[in-house]
């Protein structure tokens, strides 16, 4: 055998060997005993979670700041002063920024400066999930929550380009030095190089708890299963006119806004 041929055969068999190994590993994975894993019976189940944000009930800056603070503190979200590096899960935006296509020269000052809480819309048809090359962000089949698997994210930021709501933040650096408040010992932080966003408090739902912002909102945020005709959220949707952010894109956002009446009107 010539040296050249030997090298060829050695090279090809190495590639085949490695390839074969990954196939074997993949097959073995499926044989693990799935029966050992089960959801917590306390878990709150729904076919599709959704949230209504009732702007009538947000009277003062304090009202929405409470929601933001509780969210950012239970999830160990850092406070990064540089807006370019900011990490945000839930935050207020003025009407013109939250609903840019609805801009109107004659919109009342009251609405113009109303701080709308914005967050991940947990879309029915999420573009971020469509573009993610590793399924690190995915839609939970059970309840429609758009999840983040921080263990799998490669930090390509395709999802940030795809999200029409600006809901995603990237860790441009190690976030830990920027977490000024007391850490929540039950929840992890994130590491540099991964994307994060609101997850509708999936970790609290699993314990039978409402999302933290909903709990802190004094009824201004209504959370529930929109597929359930008798749920509170459906009653609210039936009795109020609501709008969603950029529904024309076909993403099917699950966050609704009640603008409500104006006391000056």
């Amino acid at each position: 055998m010539k040296r050249r041929e030997f090298l060829k055969i050695a090279g090809i068999s190495t590639i085949l060997g490695l390839g074969g190994m990954s196939v074997v590993n993949e097959l073995r994975k499926g044989s693990l005993e799935a029966a050992q894993y089960a959801p917590d019976p306390k878990t709150m189940a729904a076919k599709r979670w959704a949230m209504v944000i009732d702007m009538k009930k947000f009277k003062t800056a304090d009202d929405y700041q409470k929601c933001v603070d509780v969210c950012h503190s239970v999830h160990n979200v850092p406070d990064i002063p540089d807006p370019k590096r900011e990490i945000k899960w839930l935050w207020p935006e003025m009407f013109v920024h939250a609903f840019p296509a609805q801009e109107d020269l004659y919109l009342s000052e009251h609405y113009k400066h109303m701080p709308f809480l914005v967050t991940c819309n947990h879309c029915a048809n999420p573009p971020c999930v469509r573009v993610c090359p590793t399924k690190a962000t995915f839609k939970r089949m059970s309840d429609g929550i758009v999840m983040m698997d921080m263990h799998r994210c490669i930090g390509c930021r395709f999802c940030m380009a795809a999200c029409p709501y600006g809901a995603r933040s990237f860790n441009w650096q190690d976030p830990r030095p920027f977490i000024k408040r007391e850490l929540n010992p039950e929840f992890p932080t994130r590491m540099k190089g991964v994307v994060e966003k609101c997850t509708f408090c999936y970790e609290r739902l699993a314990k039978g708890l409402m999302p933290a912002c909903v709990e802190a909102s004094n009824g201004a945020l209504i959370f529930g299963d929109v597929t359930e005709p008798n749920s509170e959220i459906r009653k609210v949707l039936n009795s109020n006119f609501t709008i969603r952010r950029r529904p024309e894109l076909g993403t099917g956002p699950s966050v609704y806004y009640i603008i409500g009446g104006n006391e000056h009107a």
Binding site: V129, R130, V131, C132, P133, T134, K135, A136, R152, C153, I154, G155, C156, R157, F158, F170, N171, K192, G193, V194, V195
Partner: peptide, 19 residues
């Protein structure tokens, strides 16, 4: 450009046909 360059093989490990 990867935030987590060491995980770049996840693209092959978890092939995603809609991406």
């Amino acid at each position: 450009d990867m935030g987590q360059p060491l995980r770049v093989l996840n693209v092959i490990l978890h092939p995603t046909f809609n991406s």
